[in-house]
Design a protein around this nucleic acid. Structure first.
Length: 325
DNA sequence: AGTTGTTTAAGATTTT
DNA sequence: AAAATCTTAAACAACT
């Protein structure tokens, strides 16, 4: 093999599809949702390949966001000014990638629309995720320290069986894991606990960067960050992931208007599912008053507040979606 | 005017 | 080979 020129490796096209890349970006954010521009930023920061031909791939990316059911749009609340909506992963698309690996998607995630008894409405998922994000946010702001058990499991509630305990080495958590640097100097792991059976994030990157076998096309993955980060992230107004923290923090301090606005409203007014109860109820027992209003006024039909145990099981099962082959 | 989002269409690549 | 998946292009609406 001809000896590659200097930036040959890192400029190679990463083995990830746009769906994978987008999912990575979203998953990497504290609230599990990002505006389009931040998704761009995430990808460009980590994959030099995508610093060129932006017109081309960004169009493709947008196409994927709109086209694939696994991405749902979450409207901004008035206190979150900015362009465009947030994008999140559909709560039930956890098993979209085989064994959690983002290398290649094996099943297409498709929302079942045939079932008109319990249609999966993006709006519901969006609403659910908004609350999730809010909870995460508040947890962030309130606790200050590391997030107590902020598991992706919250998203894996979908009926699809997922090897929840195991995360493939190529799983997003393993790929992008690193530390968040909080403004106050706090640092916490962005990751869920990684099963010790699999290579730890830094092992992965070590393999990739120094041996040149695995991840030459990626910057800023776990382990590299503390030593030297060759990328431009430091120059920006972004925290480690290119995620602006200010709107979040600022949001946590105020009363949240709570707007469960459906973005893709179902034409025929379908009997609304019971409002998605706020999961992780115990997490924020002493959190700012800001978040309670939202969850209660989201849907008119929040008849009986679910008990904590109930809340944890229901939301995603209410979202009827499936990974079809 | 630029960004964001939706949609259609078609070619390429990979899997079965 | 067929099917599924992925990529790219492009037109267009809505919004900032």
């Amino acid at each position: 093999m001809p000896r590659p020129g200097r930036n040959t490796y890192s400029d190679q096209k990463p083995p990830y599809s746009y769906i994978s890349l987008t999912a990575m970006a979203i998953q990497s954010s504290p609230e599990k949702m990002l505006p389009l521009s931040e998704i761009y930023k995430f990808i460009m920061d980590r994959f030099p390949y995508y610093r060129e031909n932006t017109q081309r791939w960004q169009n493709s990316l947008r196409h994927n966001l709109s086209f694939n059911d696994c991405f749902i749009k979450i409207p901004r609340r008035p206190d979150q000014p900015g362009k465009g909506s947030f994008w999140a992963l559909h709560p039930s698309c956890g098993d979209m990638f085989e064994n959690g690996s983002f290398l290649r998607r094996r099943k297409r995630f498709k929302v079942l629309k045939s079932d008109h008894l319990a249609p999966s409405k993006p709006a519901d998922a969006a609403q659910y995720l908004q609350q999730q994000a809010k909870l995460r946010l508040s947890a962030l702001a309130a606790s200050g320290t590391h997030l107590p058990q902020m598991p992706t499991a919250a998203y894996n509630l979908g009926g699809v069986a997922q090897p929840s305990g195991f995360k493939h080495p190529f799983a997003i958590e393993n790929i992008i894991a690193r530390e968040y640097k909080m403004p106050g100097g706090l640092a916490f792991s962005a990751m869920q606990p990684v099963p010790a059976a699999y290579p730890l994030p830094n092992q992965l990157t070590t393999m990739g960067s120094s041996l040149g076998t695995g991840w030459p096309h990626m910057y800023g993955s776990a382990g590299m960050i503390d030593s030297a980060t060759p990328i431009s992230m430091a120059s920006g107004d972004y925290s480690a992931y290119g995620v602006p923290l200010k709107p979040l923090c600022h949001a946590a301090g105020q009363t949240l208007p709570a707007i469960p606005v459906p973005i893709k409203p179902t034409p025929a007014a379908v009997p609304a599912l019971p409002a998605l109860p706020a999961p992780i109820p115990t997490l924020l027992s002493n959190s700012p008053p800001s978040l309670s209003p939202t969850s209660s006024q989201t849907a008119t039909s929040q008849s009986s507040p679910a008990t904590p145990s109930e809340t944890l099981t229901s939301p995603a099962s209410a979202l009827h979606s499936v990974a079809v082959h």
